[in-house]
Computed example of a mutant assay.
Amino acid sequence: MQTQLSHTIVSEDLAAIIDADLPWERFEGKTVLVTGAGGLVGSYIVWTLLALNERSDKPVKVIASGRNASALAHKLGAHEHLRLVELPLTNVAPLELKADFVIHAASPSRTSIHRDDPLGTIAPNVFGTQALLELAQRSRAEGFLFVSSGAVYGQPELADGQRVHEDIAASYGHLNPVMSYAEGKRMGEFLCRAWAAQHGLQTTIARLGHTYGPGLEETDERVFADFAFRILRNEPIVIKSAGTAIRPFCYVTDAIVGLFTILLRGGKGEAYNLVNVRNEFSMLELASALREEFSERNVHVEVLGQSSHSFQKQILLSTDKLEALGWEPKISIREGFRRTIESY
């Protein structure tokens, strides 16, 4: 079966990930459950775990969960140590599985879904998280990783130049249905901390930022994904706002190494910001960099200057806590987007 995994760039990415200095041997002979396995991050997690089997005679067994098993099979391909399942993560019904590690990356990612279906957005982050925590406890799991988001911070009051550390209080109107994604992630995080405190479960939390790489889909509504597909179609890069908001852009290999660093080395019940502070660009700066990087496509940039509807205007996160565990990003914005575009 031809899948994205067969692409040279993805294979190179996986080789770079498993070369990271991490205690990969902890996965030997173990079973890892990965939810959201059809997404960009989830698929790379699954492929990384399976790639470890090329270096060990004690194979990792992966249970990959997604909304549609046939789509998941098309995305991930076939592997003797891979099992595909569809889990009901919209309620707290018991999940009749066992796993030594659980990585919960399932959540609606499109902002239109967050706005139009707040209940469907909250469900996997709250009810699904509770069900998976119970599964982990019943399995005596060694580790549980909840893939959260920097959206949990909202728009905190900060001094000029102040970076957001993991213990800062969130600031947003939580009763606004548009905030379903941020509020669902916050509650999922709280459940992880509560299970760690009350039951001693080894839970960890990763607050991802703007993660990109091979596997982005055209239905992705985030600006950087729109930029990538416009370049692929030789269309103008359109910035609807003034383009001044600054975001940190993290290539998927750096993000995956960060996630496994948190899972394998993180403190019980602790949250970690996972963004690339070395690649902080405004939307206009990103568009200009991509125009230069792909000059052979003669792409130009259009700035419409419309009002932004994003609730999170601009915050800069600190990754000191994660870097103290030994993680650091390696891929530049130009290299990362070059690899992303060429993977298509």
Rank of each mutant, 00 (worst) to 15 (best):
D21M: 07
T48W: 00
T219D: 15
A242K: 13
G36W: 03
A71R: 15
I262L: 06
R247P: 02
L52E: 07
P88M: 00
A197N: 04
H79Y: 08
E166M: 02
T111S: 15
P236D: 13
D254T: 01
P94F: 07
S70N: 05
E302P: 03
E292V: 12
Y272H: 13
L14P: 02
H300D: 15
V62K: 10
E293Q: 11
A197E: 10
L286W: 05
F144Q: 10
H165Q: 13
H74L: 14
S112Q: 06
K240C: 04
A71Y: 07
V41C: 10
A289L: 15
I45L: 14
V238K: 08
E217S: 15
A51Y: 01
V62I: 09
D160V: 15
S56F: 11
D116K: 10
L135Q: 12
E296W: 03
L145A: 05
A242E: 05
R338G: 06
R278W: 10
A289N: 04
G161Y: 03
G215M: 05
G66C: 08
R138N: 13
R163S: 15
I9C: 06
I45M: 06
C192V: 11
F260G: 07
S282W: 00
V178C: 11
M1D: 07
G128P: 00
K240W: 07
L316H: 15
L22E: 01
V126L: 14
N68E: 04
Q312A: 08
L259P: 04
P248W: 13
W24R: 00
I262W: 05
R55I: 13
H114T: 08
L263E: 04
P118F: 00
E342S: 14
L325E: 09
F146H: 02
K313C: 11
A151T: 15
H300F: 05
A131P: 13
Q130V: 11
T203S: 12
V275G: 10
Q162L: 02
V60S: 09
P94C: 03
F249E: 02
E25T: 07
G213P: 11
R193A: 01
Y44S: 05
A93T: 12
R55M: 05
T319R: 13
G66T: 02
P156F: 04
L82M: 04
A37W: 03
V41T: 05
C192P: 01
A71K: 12
T319M: 00
S6V: 05
L76K: 10
L82S: 01
R247C: 10
A106E: 01
S310W: 06
V46D: 03
V102A: 06
L87Y: 07
L49G: 03
L50F: 00
D13W: 13
S295Q: 02
R83A: 09
P236E: 08
P329F: 03
S11F: 05
R291K: 14
A197T: 08
A106Q: 06
E342R: 15
G305N: 08
R339S: 08
K98F: 06
P118C: 00
V275D: 03
L145V: 12
V126T: 07
T211H: 12
A93K: 12
F190Y: 15
A271Q: 08
H210P: 02
T204N: 08
D19P: 02
E302K: 10
L14Q: 04
T261G: 12
L89A: 04
H74M: 15
L76S: 12
P88Y: 07
E218K: 10
I168W: 01
K58A: 14
I63Q: 07
L145K: 07
